[in-house]
Simulated scan of single mutants.
Amino acid sequence: MGRLSPVAVFFLNYVAFTAFSWIFPMDRKWLASLEKPSWSPPGMVVGMAWMVIFALISLAVALLWDKVGLRRIGLSWKAVFLASWFFNQLFYIGQSFSRNLFYSFLDTAAIAVTATLLVIVSWPYSRAAALLFAPYALWSTFATALAWTIYRLNR
């Protein structure tokens, strides 16, 4: 079996990050019923932002795959990446089943931490990949502040 092309890696990664959002869709009616701060973006903007961010993540992974390769990338990078992916998927499952806003805040905070760590652990391998992870870190940090505020408004 030959080495996967960076294009295939991009698409496989994108599917891996978005699959749970299709399997466990958000309850839009419940989300609309929550009190939100005035600075909360519309749901469609949030969804589009995550689609773009998942594409940037996928591009960063494809770049690292092409430049470094899976075997040569460090265990710390792999652990941070898998943790980030895991927390992203857990968010969809948690929203579908628990509707626990405090849990959502904690999970979003974990995503923000692992996204920020991805920027840091990617830098030695590829500055371009690290910069492609930066919007993920920034948006998930914003999402954490939003999740905390929504939790506080709806306690």
Rank of each mutant, 00 (worst) to 15 (best):
N88F: 05
F91E: 04
T116C: 01
L75N: 08
F105A: 05
L131V: 06
Y103F: 13
F105G: 01
S84M: 12
L101Q: 09
A109S: 10
T116E: 08
A115N: 08
A115L: 02
A129W: 03
S122F: 04
F97Q: 12
Y125D: 02
D107W: 05
L82N: 06
V119M: 09
L106Q: 05
I93D: 06
S96H: 15
L118Q: 08
L118F: 06
F86W: 12
I73Y: 14
I111W: 07
F102A: 08
I111G: 04
A83P: 02
R71K: 15
D107S: 08
A83G: 09
F97K: 11
V80F: 10
A83L: 14
L106S: 03
S96Y: 15
F87H: 04
W77E: 04
S96P: 05
S98D: 13
V121N: 01
L90E: 11
L90R: 00
R99E: 15
A110G: 00
L70V: 13
L75S: 11
W85T: 04
F97L: 13
A109M: 11
P124H: 04
D107C: 12
I111L: 12
S126E: 10
T114W: 01
S98P: 06
W85S: 04
A109G: 08
G74A: 07
S96T: 08
L101R: 02
R99F: 14
S126Q: 07
T114A: 08
S98Q: 13
R127Y: 01
F105Q: 01
W77T: 01
L90G: 04
A128N: 03
Y103M: 13
F87Y: 14
F81S: 06
W123G: 00
W85V: 07
V119G: 05
I111V: 13
L82W: 13
D107Q: 09
F102E: 10
G74D: 14
F102P: 02
G94R: 08
A128M: 06
L106W: 09
S126A: 09
F91N: 03
L117R: 00
S76E: 13
S98Y: 15
F86L: 13
A128V: 07
F91D: 06
I111Q: 11
N88L: 04
I93Y: 15
R71C: 09
I93H: 12
L131M: 13
T116D: 03
L106T: 00
A130L: 03
T108D: 05
L106N: 02
L118N: 06
V80N: 07
S84W: 14
W123Q: 00
F102I: 01
A110Q: 00
G74Y: 08
I111M: 14
L82P: 05
F102W: 14
L117P: 02
L70C: 09
A128L: 11
R71G: 14
A109C: 10
Y125H: 11
A129T: 03
F87A: 11
I111D: 07
A110M: 11
I111E: 06
Y103H: 09
G74S: 13
S122L: 03
F97D: 05
N100L: 04
T114Q: 05
S96G: 13
R72Q: 15
D107V: 14
A110K: 00
A79R: 02
L70A: 13
W123N: 00
A128H: 03
V113Y: 09
A110T: 00
R127L: 07
T116F: 12
V113F: 10
L75H: 06
G74N: 11
L118M: 15
Y92F: 15
W123H: 00
A112M: 11
T116G: 12
